[in-house]
């Protein structure tokens, strides 16, 4: 098998750019969704807030200021071709990614929001590392990297539940809707809702996060789940929570469901709540 050599510093440099770009430049599909929501929104005060969010994205891009001061935990989705070899060999790809995150957060004037351990001293690492890295091996000789800057406020409102394998879609729709209702104003609505159904405990949660990476205009290719996405979105938007939790028709911009096979005894469901500052960027090396 022909191996392709990729230099560690090339990966670090790509990650550095992705961190900065994702924090300053709201993806087009998210901006479009905010603009579309603003046109459809029936409540004037909610329209005003949506306009402020659109204005915020514009200021961020023009003045190179982060869209939100919570520039997040860097969640990195790595798909690496089996024919890729990293050089120098004493460095792992995780080392390269963390170097890129450290440089990106420093050079981009982004906030360092990571503590070294969770319960005792909670000392800030001052580098925003380590990143959370999810790795997949794929065929070929390319590396595909996505960086998601995931804020704490919305992540805190995410939930997981084991349903009974005999439970129906309505039960899951209700629970996902309740999860959005409980998140309310605290998690910066309008939300993007990532739902994982199936897999096991940890795979299900990962699916819910991966679901957030889908284009907001896409739908699940299985019509059953595609319809479920529409039904959940409609139900969440009838809650009346609205932008900033101050009322309105716009509580969520999109719902994405991703699924996986699961055990005969299980029906795990995870909801990853994402705020309107839905920031992610990708590159292929």
């Amino acid at each position: 098998m022909n191996m392709r050599t990729v230099k560690s510093e090339q990966i670090a440099s790509a990650v550095e750019k992705l961190c900065i770009q994702s924090c300053l430049d709201l993806p087009k599909d998210v901006l479009d969704a905010l603009q579309k929501a603003e046109k459809k929104e029936s409540l004037d005060s909610a329209k005003k807030i949506l306009n402020q969010l659109i204005e915020n994205a514009k200021i961020a891009k023009e003045q190179k200021l982060p869209i939100c001061q919570d520039t997040g935990l860097a969640v990195v989705f790595l798909r690496i071709g089996s024919q890729v070899k990293i050089e120098p060999q004493d460095q792992t790809i995780s080392d390269a990614i963390n170097k890129g995150v450290e440089n990106g957060y420093e050079k981009g004037n982004l906030r360092k929001s990571v503590v070294a351990e969770p319960l005792n001293a909670r000392k800030n690492t001052q580098t925003n590392t380590p990143a959370v890295i999810h790795t997949e091996i794929i065929p070929g000789d390319k590396i595909h990297i996505t960086v998601m800057a995931k804020g704490g406020g919305c992540e805190n409102k995410s939930r997981f539940k084991m349903f009974l394998p005999t439970d129906d879609r309505e039960k899951i729709i209700d629970w996902v809707t309740q999860t959005a209702a409980q998140a309310g104003a605290n998690a910066c609505p309008p939300f993007v809702i990532g739902v994982g159904i199936g897999g096991d405990f940890e795979q299900c949660c990962l699916l819910s996060k991966k679901a957030l990476l889908r284009n907001l205009n896409s739908q699940n290719t299985d019509p059953f789940y595609g319809q479920m996405e529409k039904d959940i979105l409609q139900k969440i938007n009838s809650l009346g929570i609205g932008p900033s939790g101050l009322g309105g028709d716009t509580t969520a911009l999109a719902v994405s469901i991703e699924t996986a096979p699961c055990h005969i005894a299980s029906l795990p469901v995870a909801v990853n709540i994402e705020c309107h500052a839905h920031r992610h960027s990708s590159i292929e090396i």
Binding site: N56, I59, Q63, L65, I67, A277
Partner: peptide, 11 residues
Amino acid sequence: AALGGAGALLS
């Protein structure tokens, strides 16, 4: 309540 997620604007 200030507008969450609009840190660039509020700055």
